[in-house]
Simulated assay, not measured.
Amino acid sequence: MTGFDLASFGAVALTSLLALAFLQAGTFFVARRLGRYNVVDVVWGPGFVLVAGVAPLVGSGDGARALLLFALTGIWGIRLGVHIAAQSRGKGEDPRYEEMLERSGGATERSGGGTASASAAVAIRKIFLTQGLAQWFVSLPLQVSAAAGPTRGVGWIVLGLGVAVWLVGFCFEAIGDRQLARYKADPDRGPVMDRGLWGWTRHPNYFGDAAVWWGIWLVAAAVWPGVLTVVAPIVMTYFLVHATGARLLEKSMEKRPGYREYQQRTSFFLPRPPRSGGS
């Protein structure tokens, strides 16, 4: 195959959608059994790994690039899934989901720290369907690449740049999470985490997540029409900054002593050297 196969892309898109639907359905039943819906966060990363694995099996695109994208997505997605699972083990429901379900009339009583009696219909629509569609949309670079021909010429430079951006993002996310874990385990820690990467950006994990997906997009953009899927990393970055990520977290963090000063000296999202003072 030397070009882009539209029929192949259609098959990849449909198969990816079905695979994610089965994943979310299975996650929903596990969540109901556990009595908490935040288990859906654990399969956020692995859902993309599923698409990265399924897409090239159905598509007729370049196998070498598909293997690279599977490796990049797999390393990121599995690490993220394991990390979130460890973070949520033994804890109750995420306050975000409790608030969301209560606003929608989906939580009527609580049991064992969870929202066990939340309306199944509301939970499916507000949480599982929303996440599944978001996974499908953000994974469009993987899907389009699985129906595109081999990388040639200047495309190799774009692909190499994508791998470099992915590596920067993965390091920021993984190292940032590790530094935060060490901070939480330190009995002599201060009220605000401002060490390491957290001194360069207040959200190194969210920045890293965004960079990972810009890198994956660049790898897909190495061949036509992968560049057209740029809307995917834009949407991912929007979620990480505004919708469910950094801005939302800042609302609660601003209540901590010293956090206002931390905001003044440390970049919000994009890394840069800390300022000595001012805004």
Rank of each mutant, 00 (worst) to 15 (best):
F9A: 04
V12Y: 12
A13K: 05
L14M: 12
F22M: 11
L23K: 09
L23F: 09
A25W: 14
G26D: 12
G26R: 13
T27F: 00
T27S: 07
F28A: 07
F28M: 08
F29S: 03
A31V: 02
R33G: 10
R33L: 14
R36H: 13
G45D: 12
G45T: 06
P46M: 10
G47I: 06
V49W: 15
L50C: 06
V51S: 01
V54A: 08
V58L: 00
G59T: 14
S60C: 07
G61F: 08
A71G: 07
L72T: 14
L72F: 13
G74M: 10
I75M: 12
L80V: 09
G81V: 00
V82H: 03
I84R: 01
I84Q: 01
A86K: 07
S88R: 12
G92V: 05
E93C: 02
E98F: 13
L101F: 12
E102R: 09
S104P: 09
G105C: 09
G106L: 02
G106F: 03
T115C: 03
A116Y: 03
S117W: 10
A118I: 04
A123Y: 00
A123N: 01
I124R: 15
K126Q: 15
K126E: 14
K126F: 05
T130Y: 02
G132V: 01
A134R: 00
Q135F: 04
W136F: 15
W136I: 03
F137A: 14
L140F: 14
P141T: 04
R152K: 07
G153N: 14
G153Q: 15
V154C: 14
W156C: 08
V165A: 10
W166F: 12
W166I: 04
V168G: 07
G169T: 11
G169I: 09
F170W: 10
C171F: 13
C171V: 14
A174C: 04
I175K: 12
D177Q: 03
D177H: 03
Q179Y: 06
Y183R: 00
Y183V: 00
Y183D: 01
A185H: 03
D188L: 08
R189L: 04
G190F: 02
P191H: 13
R195I: 01
G196Y: 06
W200G: 10
H203A: 12
H203G: 05
N205A: 08
N205R: 06
N205C: 15
Y206G: 11
Y206P: 06
Y206Q: 10
G208Y: 11
D209C: 09
A211R: 03
A211S: 13
W214Y: 07
A221T: 08
G226K: 00
L228S: 01
A232W: 02
V235L: 12
A246I: 03
K251Q: 13
S252A: 15
S252F: 05
Y259D: 07
Q263A: 07
Q264G: 09
R272I: 10
G277F: 15
G277Q: 13
S279Y: 11
